[in-house]
């Protein structure tokens, strides 16, 4: 199978329009303000996000979507990661694919009915992420399912590592669902989001290394920093290439489970390692809450957890996962 990983003109236009919108309306700096956290800024921009066509992008036209593919959805998910957009926007992209009937699907595509991620925690309930305004949950429980949020019991707010999202603890127990094509599609979008974090932190570190001077020169001239940056670029490139290769070939005869698990593993590694390296390159400022570097690290941990974690991806890669 010959895979062209260069974006088509249409793909480039979709990605650029989403990136331009996000840079304008949902820049990462918004998260410094508690009033814009927890999906609030996204809720304020909801009509425009819907109008951009995000929520039916990869859905067949016959089912009310734009008839594009997983590659286009992954490009959008990467852009969402670049701007640390609420994970609920990714959940809203996945939900229409899982809707059991036309009416619900149409309402999800139109953004009238809203979805958020719920993450199963073993036998003991789970987390609902940025669930304000959502009536449905995209439940990540091995496999993936769309359920009514009422079935989750009464969620209790908890503080978690990423204080820019609102997390609620649910006590209702959920059975694990089998992994299937739908869950691997969802996994690839989470992986694409993580590659966005890997890219954003690479660029933030490079920009700082060019301007910050010590010993009379930009710190990026020192090989110790330059080589860290080169490794950040390499990790990001490998994760992106695998992610988009898996998205383009999805359902076309390669082992989608292994391809998606590889993408998720590399994307998690790239996002966490790059977010960490970005903090290191920013030095003392990077350790503070005044610098945005910490936001990427915290979000990377949340998304890695939503994607199932590296141990799961590793077992799937060797066919030893249950």
């Amino acid at each position: 199978m010959i895979v062209d990983l260069h974006p088509t003109e249409d793909q480039r236009m979709i990605e650029e329009s989403v990136r331009a919108f996000l840079a304008d309306r949902l820049p990462v700096e918004r998260l410094r303000e508690p009033a814009h956290q927890g999906g609030a800024a996204e809720a304020a921009a909801w009509a425009e996000l819907t109008a951009l066509g995000l929520f039916g992008l990869g859905l067949d036209e016959a089912r009310g979507g734009l008839g594009l593919g997983l590659a286009e959805e992954a490009l959008v998910a990467r852009a969402l990661g670049l701007h640390l957009v609420s994970p609920s926007v990714v959940a809203q992209m996945i939900a229409p694919h899982l809707a059991p009937d036309d009416a619900l699907r149409a309402a999800l595509v139109a953004g009238e009915t809203r979805a958020a991620f719920a993450n199963r925690i073993g036998e003991a309930g789970g987390h609902l992420i940025d669930g304000a305004g959502a009536s449905h949950a995209v439940l990540l429980a091995g496999g993936v399912a769309l359920i009514g949020i009422d079935a989750l019991g009464s969620p209790e707010p908890v503080d978690a590592i990423d204080e820019t999202v609102r997390i609620a603890r649910m006590l209702a127990a959920f059975p694990a669902a089998p992994r299937d094509a739908a869950s691997d599609r969802a996994l690839l979008l989470l992986a694409a989001y993580l590659t966005g974090i890997a890219q954003a932190t690479r660029d933030m570190a490079v920009a700082y290394a060019i301007t910050r001077e010590q010993f009379g020169q930009p710190i990026g001239a020192f090989q110790a920093i330059k080589h860290m940056a080169a490794d950040m670029a390499t990790r990001a490139a490998a994760a992106e290439a695998q992610c988009f290769h898996a998205a383009v070939t999805f359902g076309r005869g390669l082992d989608d489970g292994i391809e998606a698990a590889a993408a998720a593993l590399l994307a998690e590694t790239a996002a966490l390692a790059n977010a960490g390296a970005n903090i290191q390159i920013h030095g003392g400022m990077g350790f503070t809450a005044e610098c945005d570097a910490h936001l990427y690290l915290k979000r990377a941990h949340l998304l890695a957890s939503l994607a199932g974690g590296r141990r799961l991806h590793q077992r799937r890669l060797l066919g030893t996962a249950s």
């Binding site: 490998a238 994760a239 695998q242 292994i258 991806h313 590793q314």
Partner: peptide, 9 residues
């Protein structure tokens, strides 16, 4: 598993 993911990449 990590090596397999890396050769796929």
């Amino acid at each position: 598993a990590t090596l397999r993911a890396e050769v796929l990449a």
